[in-house]
């Protein structure tokens, strides 16, 4: 009856299985979302991710324009390309969202994260911690005779690497800000 060749019974996937897991890889994207700084806006963004089952690897938010009441949310998320597209479209639907930028695809960008490490120890371990901190260009922001608090800024990978090194040397507490990111300058950038 049908002039088309129809695959039958070729798949037992359910109707909700919207993505082809076999062909699409999981990608990591950094999104910058500019929003009105109003009550509940962060809850809307987080609620969207949890309600629709998207991943959040990192999320930072702070006001960036006091007079204009604007905040910038930086979200690092993972998903297949079609899920990433959905996330952007869904973010765009939120009424107080002004702009959604996918820094991962919109050209080169820079990402930075800040972390504070409390490392407790004596003797050789303490010396080694300080030596490594120097290599990582960490600042010592507090110290006692038995501890340091280091401040490290860099990519998330750099912070991961520093944490790995500090663990055996007495890492007792760690606080990370999450990623902040910006697109690199282009010729036509203007002051805002």
């Amino acid at each position: 009856m049908s002039p088309l060749k129809i695959k039958r019974g070729s798949s037992s996937h359910s109707a909700y299985d919207l993505r082809d897991y076999h062909e699409q890889t999981i990608e990591r994207h950094t999104l910058a979302v500019v929003v009105d700084n109003e009550a509940g806006v962060l809850a809307r963004v987080i609620g969207l991710f949890s309600g629709r089952g998207y991943n959040i690897e990192s999320l930072t938010v702070a006001e960036i324009d006091h007079t204009g009441h604007r905040s910038r949310i930086t979200v690092v998320t993972t998903g297949t390309p079609s899920v990433i597209e959905q996330i952007k479209a869904q973010l765009g639907r939120i009424v107080p969202v002004h702009e959604v930028h996918d820094l991962t695809v919109e050209g080169p960008s820079v990402e930075r994260e800040l972390a504070l490490f409390k490392v407790t120890g004596k003797g050789d371990a303490r010396v080694e911690a300080l030596r490594l901190a120097d290599i990582f260009r960490a600042n010592v922001v507090d110290s006692t005779l038995e501890s340091f608090v280091f401040e490290v800024t860099g990519t998330s990978e750099k912070i991961d690497a520093f944490a790995e090194l500090m663990r055996p040397l007495g890492l007792s507490e760690l606080a990370r800000t999450g990623v902040a990111a910006l697109a690199r300058s282009k010729a036509d950038d203007k002051p805002s």
């Binding site: 088309l4 060749k5 129809i6 695959k7 039958r8 070729s10 798949s11 996937h13 109707a15 909700y16 299985d17 919207l18």
Partner: peptide, 14 residues
């Protein structure tokens, strides 16, 4: 909607 598409893989294949 899923009331329309039925099995996604076989939805209007051509």
């Amino acid at each position: 909607d899923d009331r329309i598409t039925g099995r996604i893989q076989d939805f209007s294949p051509g």
